[in-house]
Amino acid sequence: MVSRWRPLPDTLDPAGQLLAQELRVLKERTGLSLDGLARKTPYSKSAWHRYLNGEKLPPRAAVEALGRVAGADQIRLLGLYDAAHRARTAPAPAGNAPAGPEIGQPAPPTGPARRKLRGAAALIALTAVVATMGAAASIASIPAHAVRAEWTAPDSCHGHRCEGRYPRRFGCHRDARAESTITDDTYTVRLLFSPACGTVWSEVRPRSGGAQKVSIWVGRDARLTSHPGGRTGRAVSPMLATEDLHSAVACARVADRVACTGALELRTPARPGPDHDLPDPTFLLHAAR
Rank of each mutant, 00 (worst) to 15 (best):
M1A: 04
V2Y: 01
R4P: 00
R4A: 07
D10V: 02
T11S: 15
D13K: 10
G16I: 12
L19R: 10
Q21K: 14
Q21F: 07
E22W: 02
R24Y: 12
R24F: 13
V25M: 12
K27M: 11
R29N: 10
R29T: 14
L32Y: 09
S33K: 01
D35W: 00
G36P: 01
R39W: 04
T41D: 01
T41I: 02
Y43F: 15
S44I: 01
K45T: 03
G54W: 00
G54P: 00
G54M: 00
L57G: 01
L57H: 04
P59Q: 02
A62C: 01
E64H: 06
A65D: 12
L66C: 07
G67H: 07
G71V: 07
Q74L: 15
I75N: 11
R76S: 13
L77E: 08
L78I: 09
G79T: 07
Y81C: 05
D82F: 02
R88G: 07
T89P: 00
A92Q: 11
Q105N: 06
Q105P: 00
P106G: 04
A107W: 04
P108H: 06
P108D: 03
P108S: 05
P108G: 02
T110H: 04
A113F: 02
R115I: 10
R118C: 03
A122C: 05
L123P: 01
I124M: 13
T127H: 02
A128M: 14
A128N: 05
V129R: 08
V130N: 05
A131T: 13
T132I: 08
A135K: 11
A136I: 11
A136M: 13
A136Q: 12
A137V: 11
A137T: 11
A140Y: 05
A140Q: 10
I142V: 15
A146N: 11
A146F: 07
E150L: 15
A153W: 07
D155R: 13
R161L: 12
R161S: 14
R161G: 05
C162H: 03
R168L: 12
H173M: 10
H173I: 11
R174I: 15
R174P: 01
R174Q: 14
A176S: 12
R177S: 15
I182V: 14
I182N: 03
V189Q: 05
V189H: 08
L192K: 15
A196G: 03
W201Y: 14
V204Y: 06
V204L: 09
R205S: 11
R207E: 09
S208F: 13
Q212W: 06
Q212K: 06
K213S: 13
V214K: 06
I216G: 03
I216P: 04
W217I: 04
V218Y: 13
D221L: 02
T225R: 12
P228L: 09
P228Y: 08
R231C: 05
R234K: 15
A235Y: 07
V236D: 08
P238L: 04
M239Y: 04
M239H: 04
T242A: 06
E243V: 12
S247W: 06
A248W: 10
A252G: 09
V254T: 13
V254Q: 14
V254R: 10
A263C: 03
E265I: 10
E265C: 01
A270R: 03
P274F: 10
L278P: 07
P281M: 08
P281W: 08
T282W: 09
F283E: 13
L285S: 08
A288R: 12
R289G: 15
R289A: 14
